[in-house]
């Protein structure tokens, strides 16, 4: 699990409006903002600068250390880089081949990709199907079912892990009849795909429902008059119109799965372990070999960082997704 969480709690209307107003201002043109009188004082700017430096320094130290020769890393601080000059990619070469007895860091990196992509696409599709039904098909007890799905969000992951694992490995047997024989391979990604899919669903359904229900009724009725069934409406109207929301949630899901440790520890053993798991493992093993640890950590965080800096706009929008719709 990663740190990023969109607002997933119910918010009252006025807060919603307030956040939407603020968001609109953030996204507004910079030219309009420059003309405004600056309200911040010089001391506030200095305080902000200090916080910004405090917040960035640890990451900077990691990056610099990962590029220094092993001997230098072990004996001198990274802030002495100018007096103890040295620059190398050896740490990266070395750490990609390192690992535990079953897999190397480069294989774990590949595993992370193989786990993350399906575990992002599958829940999004299933959740948007369900979100459509909750928004646009009337049925008895709809509100209660929806509240039930929403309430599942408060169940901590920890409650579900162990029984789900035994379900995967042993299947379900009721009265001696095997209803489901289990997935019975320890070395496939399937367990971790399914687990991530399930754990993502409550929040994904809730957020996507917010967006899907905002689509104008006339649009859907017009399509219905033209002879489109629910299948076509979903595929031709809902999917294209909610794409921004789906993309925003997709980024979150991607980061969650990529950064997750707990689910990986339980469901992805042996040769399918992702990079977070291997990294957590070697932290103990390599204890003081900081040139390897720093390089390994940087490999693990580089993809989320690239995603973050490339899609920052959507990221922030997605963070406010629960509060500001559409």
């Amino acid at each position: 699990m990663s740190a990023v969480t969109p607002i997933d709690l119910p918010i009252d209307r006025s807060t919603e409006k307030q956040l939407a107003r603020g968001e609109a201002k953030i996204e507004g043109s910079t030219a309009a903002r420059r003309t405004k009188r600056r309200l911040t004082s010089r001391s506030a700017t200095i305080a902000a600068l200090i916080i910004a430096i405090l917040w960035t320094t640890p990451t900077l130290g990691l990056l610099i250390s990962s590029l220094r020769p092993a001997k230098e890393v072990a004996t001198t601080g990274w802030w002495t880089i100018f007096s103890n000059w040295g620059f190398t990619f050896d740490n990266y070469v070395q750490v990609l081949a390192a690992g535990n007895t079953q897999l190397t860091m480069s294989e774990a990196f590949l595993n992370s990709i193989a786990i993350t992509l399906p575990a992002t696409v599958i829940p999004l599709v299933i959740a948007s199907l369900a979100a459509y039904a909750f928004a646009w098909i009337d049925f008895k007890g709809k509100d209660w079912v929806f509240i039930g799905v929403f309430a599942l969000q408060i169940v901590p992951l920890q409650m579900a892990l162990v029984p789900l694992l035994s379900l995967f490995s042993r299947g379900i047997t009721i009265g001696g009849v095997q209803l489901f024989s289990g997935l019975n391979q320890g070395t496939s990604y399937s367990q971790v795909w399914i687990a991530h899919t399930i754990f993502a669903l409550p929040l994904a359904i809730f957020l996507l429902h917010n967006f899907v229900s905002e689509i104008p009724r006339e649009l859907i009725e017009a399509a219905r008059v033209d002879g489109a069934g629910h299948g076509q409406i979903f595929f031709r109207i809902i999917l294209p119109l909610t794409m921004p929301a789906i993309a925003a949630f997709g980024i979150f899901q991607f980061l969650w799965v990529w950064n997750d440790l707990l689910v990986a520890l339980v469901f992805a053993d042996g040769t399918v372990a992702p990079i977070t798991k291997l990294l957590a493992e070697v932290t103990g093993k390599y204890g003081q070999e900081w040139h390897l640890l720093t390089a390994g950590a940087f490999i693990a965080i580089v993809i989320p960082l690239v995603v973050f800096f490339a899609l920052q706009r959507y990221f922030v929008r997605g963070l406010l997704a629960g509060s500001t719709k559409g």
Binding site: S2, A52, W55, S65, N259, A280, T294, G296, P304, L305
Partner: peptide, 23 residues
Amino acid sequence: FKALVFMPMAISFVGASIIWKFV
């Protein structure tokens, strides 16, 4: 300014732990 303070959110807890263990 925002991006600098917001950046740690994209980093996994595991990555952040190693960063701080080093500190």
